[in-house]
Amino acid sequence: MAILYSTRVTASGGRKGSIRSEDGLLALALAIPKELGGMGGATNPEQLFAGGYAACFENALLRVARQSGHRFADGDVEVVAEIGLSRNEADAFVLHASLAITMAGIDQASAEEFVRGADAICPYSNAVRGNVDVVKTVTVR
């Protein structure tokens, strides 16, 4: 299988350190969230994952809609990803995810069909499938 795109990001200092992409476009300080006993004040891996998942899923949704002959106007689609961290019965950390998808100008059945299609092609969805429970909520406004 041919790789279509690849990037490199280096982490230093763990959850209290920083990350930097090889091209320098991404350079962020990291902090342990206050909710986990840290100082907060900087981003964390869960926020980064949520942002990537939301953006990727929305793009997959727009692609599926276009392929079905529907074009959304700017602002007609919003995807909010929530990533949670907990411990399992073996005391290992595990992720939980939810996607709140809102669309305008479309009926509920079509919206749900587009979400199923997006879930099938989104790289994040494919990466977590079978490993992370993802709850999807679809709202039409």
Rank of each mutant, 00 (worst) to 15 (best):
A50F: 03
D119L: 02
L48I: 10
V94C: 08
F114R: 03
P45A: 07
A90N: 13
V80K: 15
G75A: 14
E46K: 08
V94P: 06
R66Q: 12
C122P: 03
A109W: 10
L99F: 05
L99Y: 05
S110M: 01
G52R: 10
E82I: 15
V80S: 15
R87P: 01
R63F: 10
A73S: 14
G40N: 09
T43K: 01
A104D: 02
F114N: 00
V80I: 15
A54Q: 13
M39H: 14
V140A: 04
G105W: 06
A127D: 08
R71F: 07
L48R: 06
R87C: 00
G75H: 10
T102V: 09
R129T: 05
F49A: 04
N88A: 13
A50M: 07
P45K: 09
G38Q: 10
D107Y: 05
R63M: 12
D76S: 10
V64W: 05
T137N: 07
G38N: 03
L62C: 05
V132H: 02
V138A: 00
G84H: 05
R87V: 11
F114T: 02
D119S: 06
N126L: 12
N59E: 11
V80L: 15
Y53H: 02
L99W: 04
E113K: 11
Y124E: 11
A90K: 15
A109P: 00
N131R: 13
A73K: 13
A54C: 13
A55E: 09
S110K: 11
N59W: 08
L61E: 02
I83W: 04
F72R: 09
V134K: 06
R87S: 08
N44T: 07
R71W: 04
I106S: 06
